[in-house]
Measured scan of single mutants.
Amino acid sequence: MATGGRRGAAAAPLLVAVAALLLGAAGHLYPGEVCPGMDIRNNLTRLHELENCSVIEGHLQILLMFKTRPEDFRDLSFPKLIMITDYLLLFRVYGLESLKDLFPNLTVIRGSRLFFNYALVIFEMVHLKELGLYNLMNITRGSVRIEKNNELCYLATIDWSRILDSVEDNYIVLNKDDNEECGDICPGTAKGKTNCPATVINGQFVERCWTHSHCQKVCPTICKSHGCTAEGLCCHSECLGNCSQPDDPTKCVACRNFYLDGRCVETCPPPYYHFQDWRCVNFSFCQDLHHKCKNSRRQGCHQYVIHNNKCIPECPSGYTMNSSNLLCTPCLGPCPKVCHLLEGEKTIDSVTSAQELRGCTVINGSLIINIRGGNNLAAELEANLGLIEEISGYLKIRRSYALVSLSFFRKLRLIRGETLEIGNYSFYALDNQNLRQLWDWSKHNLTITQGKLFFHYNPKLCLSEIHKMEEVSGTKGRQERNDIALKTNGDQASCENELLKFSYIRTSFDKI
């Protein structure tokens, strides 16, 4: 039985969820670079991206490699990797027998973001014989899940209580170790020597080791999670996991709180800001991140802002960003909400898709409305799209047979046209069989910064309504002859009103 693990408890099935942008060198404390989270699957090609990484700022997932063999891993080693800020997950990587050479110096898994409450997941690794993470000293947050690894031993010899604050939620089941077939031998045991430290858990006094050649490092209890030197002297209180010299914040392997210019500090002093819960960055760093993602459509890219001495992905609820200094300031009234469309555009074809934009005031991208039916549609669209004030790209209304009016965009005031449909149009209306009105132009103002209007096959939309939009939106004169079809717009509506004058002759039985 794995020490510190839980057996036999019912657990939810383990679901495996399925960018080499360097964020800056980590400095003297770390020998390499800070790398983003990685999802490495199918083959070993991307694994080489770990070569210079000291910190993975995010998670590391290595999974679904069915053609790899043990010899493929023999020359692979990433000794610079010290810390993973989120979680480490391995799933069905064939041929991998140990992690001792792959990650010989991995010391800390912070667990800032977890995989279903777990910071370390080893699942269905069919050839893994031992973990071998002999320098792993601290899992700051989260638990361990090690399950269905039929060859995995050296679990009962690990004292997880020396690595985690609590072992109650560890789930370590259905491994070879369960069948008591392992016969784990710690260093020196074969020669009758006791080389590794022994600890007591559940009444068992057991030597602690990761492999037959690597003991588990056990520091004096007084050192807590700070770690200790090879001689057993406690590291500085700002260290986490390990250090090369005692009581020196510049000799830590990793930091308990924050890293700044080669030393570990309790908090980031001005003019620095907390970033990702582990390091200090200056304003320029946060500003660069903001600008890199301002026009990016890459998933996970955030326009970072500053709030409460932190550089964070977005302002919290009730705050909006001051564009001059990136500071989050309290909103006066309802907060603006910028919604970034991942692929640059979004099609609204149902109430469900409209709900995804609920509360958005600025759309960074283009909207395509293609709704053919739905219950209580006008009210639903207004509830979900009615706060949109600005669209950076274009607005396209296409084959939306259920629409009679666009009044559900009740606050839309600006279409920038930074991206144009077919390279020309910022407003595009095609084949809307029941569209009769755009907006009530006596109450609604709309500016279209650039781009043209396109109207074709809107049989109940009168040309007068379209011409009014040209005047109000500032697009009059931009359109070419064929942009607004004269014969297919309003051709099934009563669009022309003329005053009919009647004269009559009164007659009676005795007068003409």
Results as ranks from 00 to 15, higher is better:
83 M>T: 05
106 L>H: 02
237 S>K: 05
104 P>H: 00
56 I>Q: 00
160 W>G: 01
60 L>H: 00
51 E>I: 15
262 G>Y: 02
272 Y>G: 01
171 Y>A: 11
82 I>N: 05
164 L>S: 08
304 Y>E: 02
127 H>N: 04
147 E>D: 04
204 Q>V: 08
155 L>D: 06
179 N>L: 05
115 F>T: 05
317 S>R: 00
65 M>V: 05
304 Y>T: 14
264 C>L: 00
212 H>Q: 14
59 H>I: 03
256 R>P: 02
277 D>S: 12
117 N>C: 04
285 F>E: 01
158 I>N: 05
317 S>G: 08
48 H>D: 04
303 Q>V: 07
102 L>F: 13
275 F>A: 03
209 C>K: 13
87 Y>C: 00
331 C>M: 03
304 Y>P: 03
300 G>D: 12
188 G>L: 12
110 R>P: 01
83 M>K: 03
295 N>A: 04
184 D>H: 08
185 I>M: 09
205 F>G: 12
82 I>V: 06
80 K>W: 07
243 C>E: 00
114 L>S: 05
66 F>G: 09
286 C>D: 01
183 G>H: 07
74 R>S: 06
43 N>W: 07
239 C>H: 00
135 N>A: 12
294 K>G: 13
69 R>E: 09
281 V>W: 00
293 C>L: 04
222 I>S: 11
132 G>A: 07
152 L>I: 10
305 V>P: 03
128 L>K: 00
206 V>K: 08
215 C>H: 00
314 E>M: 05
191 K>Q: 05
192 G>P: 05
324 S>M: 11
162 R>Q: 14
53 C>W: 00
121 V>M: 07
97 E>H: 07
125 M>V: 03
297 R>S: 07
201 I>Q: 11
59 H>P: 10
146 I>H: 00
325 N>C: 11
209 C>E: 05
71 E>L: 05
258 F>R: 04
280 C>L: 01
64 L>S: 00
324 S>Q: 08
148 K>R: 15
125 M>D: 05
308 N>V: 11
195 N>R: 09
261 D>H: 15
216 Q>F: 10
31 P>Q: 04
176 K>S: 08
72 D>C: 14
94 Y>R: 09
108 V>C: 05
131 L>M: 02
290 H>I: 05
58 G>R: 00
296 S>H: 10
69 R>M: 06
144 V>L: 08
269 P>V: 10
259 Y>L: 05
189 T>P: 10
216 Q>A: 15
68 T>W: 13
110 R>V: 04
107 T>A: 07
321 M>S: 03
47 L>V: 04
234 C>Q: 02
309 N>G: 13
123 F>I: 15
148 K>L: 14
275 F>L: 06
91 F>R: 05
234 C>G: 01
284 S>G: 12
171 Y>I: 14
87 Y>E: 00
90 L>N: 00
168 E>W: 11
32 G>Q: 15
188 G>T: 05
65 M>Q: 07
118 Y>H: 09
35 C>D: 00
201 I>M: 11
53 C>T: 00
300 G>C: 09
42 N>M: 10
209 C>S: 03
236 H>N: 07
317 S>W: 14
215 C>E: 14
36 P>V: 05
98 S>K: 03
299 Q>A: 08
90 L>P: 00
29 L>F: 01
75 D>H: 05
193 K>G: 12
249 P>V: 03
144 V>G: 02
324 S>F: 08
209 C>G: 04
310 K>R: 10
128 L>T: 03
36 P>A: 11
238 E>S: 08
69 R>T: 05
98 S>M: 02
307 H>A: 03
144 V>S: 05
313 P>N: 04
196 C>Y: 03
200 V>P: 12
141 R>H: 11
310 K>T: 06
241 G>W: 02
271 P>K: 14
216 Q>S: 06
140 T>R: 09
38 M>Q: 14
277 D>C: 02
314 E>H: 02
233 L>M: 06
61 Q>S: 14
68 T>H: 09
132 G>M: 01
120 L>D: 00
327 L>E: 13
127 H>F: 04
143 S>W: 10
195 N>H: 10
32 G>D: 14
206 V>G: 04
180 E>K: 09
217 K>L: 11
131 L>W: 01
252 C>P: 00
296 S>R: 04
58 G>L: 00
174 L>G: 11
59 H>M: 09
142 G>K: 01
284 S>L: 10
192 G>Q: 15
194 T>N: 14
194 T>I: 13
127 H>L: 03
245 Q>M: 08
168 E>Y: 04
174 L>R: 13
335 C>V: 04
215 C>G: 11
196 C>M: 03
89 L>N: 01
145 R>Y: 11
77 S>N: 13
213 S>Y: 07
44 L>S: 08
203 G>A: 10
171 Y>G: 14
230 A>K: 15
85 T>V: 05
105 N>Q: 09
78 F>Y: 11
66 F>N: 01
305 V>Y: 03
276 Q>F: 12
270 P>G: 09
149 N>P: 01
228 C>A: 02
319 Y>A: 10
86 D>Y: 01
249 P>Q: 08
325 N>A: 13
157 T>K: 06
159 D>V: 06
